[in-house]
Structure formats: C-alpha cells, structure tokens
Amino acid sequence: TQVHVDGVTYTFSNPEEAKKFADEMAKRKGGTWEIKDGHIHVE
C-alpha cells in the first residue's frame, strides 16, 4: 500500500500500518487522508 505525502511516497506491505501512518501524518499536518486509486493520499 502506498502513502503519498507532500510528493514523497512511502510503501507499506500491511494496509493497516499504512492507514495508521497516514493518520499520524495527517494529524501532524492538520489535514486529512483519503484513499484514491488504491493509494492513500495525505492532504
């Protein structure tokens, strides 16, 4: 599962880990995350 944050791609083999990471990054940025085309995007 790929997580895209500010133009950087992080790859996780476990989708649950990817979601936890996205959640943390979104909180830090004061933003949100969503799943697009099977990838997670942090806004």
Rank of each mutant, 00 (worst) to 15 (best):
K29H: 15
K20P: 01
G7H: 07
M25Q: 13
A26D: 03
T9L: 09
G30W: 03
K19N: 05
F21E: 01
I40K: 01
A26L: 06
A22S: 03
W33V: 13
T1A: 06
I35P: 03
E17P: 03
M25D: 04
V3F: 01
V8I: 12
E16S: 10
E24A: 08
H39Y: 07
F21D: 00
Y10H: 08
P15Y: 15
K27M: 13
K36A: 06
G30D: 09
K36F: 08
G38P: 02
G30I: 01
G31Y: 08
G30K: 06
A26S: 06
K36M: 08
E34S: 11
T32N: 08
T1L: 10
G7R: 06
G31S: 05
E34L: 13
E16T: 10
E34H: 14
N14K: 08
D6T: 05
K19Y: 15
E34F: 14
D6K: 06
H39Q: 12
G31V: 05
E24Q: 07
P15E: 14
P15D: 12
M25R: 04
V42F: 10
A22G: 03
P15N: 09
E34T: 14
M25E: 15
G38D: 05
I35E: 12
T1S: 06
V5W: 03
V3A: 01
T11I: 13
Q2A: 09
D23W: 06
W33M: 05
I35Q: 07
F21S: 00
N14V: 08
I40E: 02
T1P: 05
N14L: 09
V3R: 00
G31M: 06
V5T: 05
K20Q: 13
A22L: 01
A26H: 02
V3L: 02
K27I: 13
K19F: 15
G38L: 04
K19T: 12
E17S: 10
I40V: 04
G30R: 05
T9I: 15
D37L: 04
Y10M: 04
R28I: 15
P15T: 12
H41K: 06
D37K: 03
E24T: 06
K20V: 12
K20N: 11
D6W: 04
G38R: 02
S13T: 12
A26M: 04
G7T: 05
H41V: 12
V3P: 00
V3S: 00
H39V: 15
M25G: 02
V8Y: 13
I40Q: 01
F21Q: 01
K27F: 14
E17W: 07
E16A: 10
M25L: 08
T11D: 08
N14Y: 07
R28K: 15
K27H: 14
G31I: 03
W33F: 05
V8G: 07
K36C: 09
E24F: 09
T1F: 11
D37Q: 05
K29Y: 15
S13E: 13
K20R: 12
G7M: 06
I35H: 07
Q2R: 11
H39P: 02
H4R: 07
V5R: 01
S13N: 11
A22N: 01
K29S: 14
K19W: 12
G7I: 02
Q2F: 14
H41G: 03
K29P: 10
T32W: 14
T11N: 11
G7Q: 07
G30V: 02
D6V: 04
A26G: 03
N14Q: 09
E16W: 10
S13D: 13
K29R: 08
T1G: 03
E17R: 07
V42K: 02
E24M: 08
V3M: 01
H41T: 10
P15I: 15
G31L: 05
I35R: 03
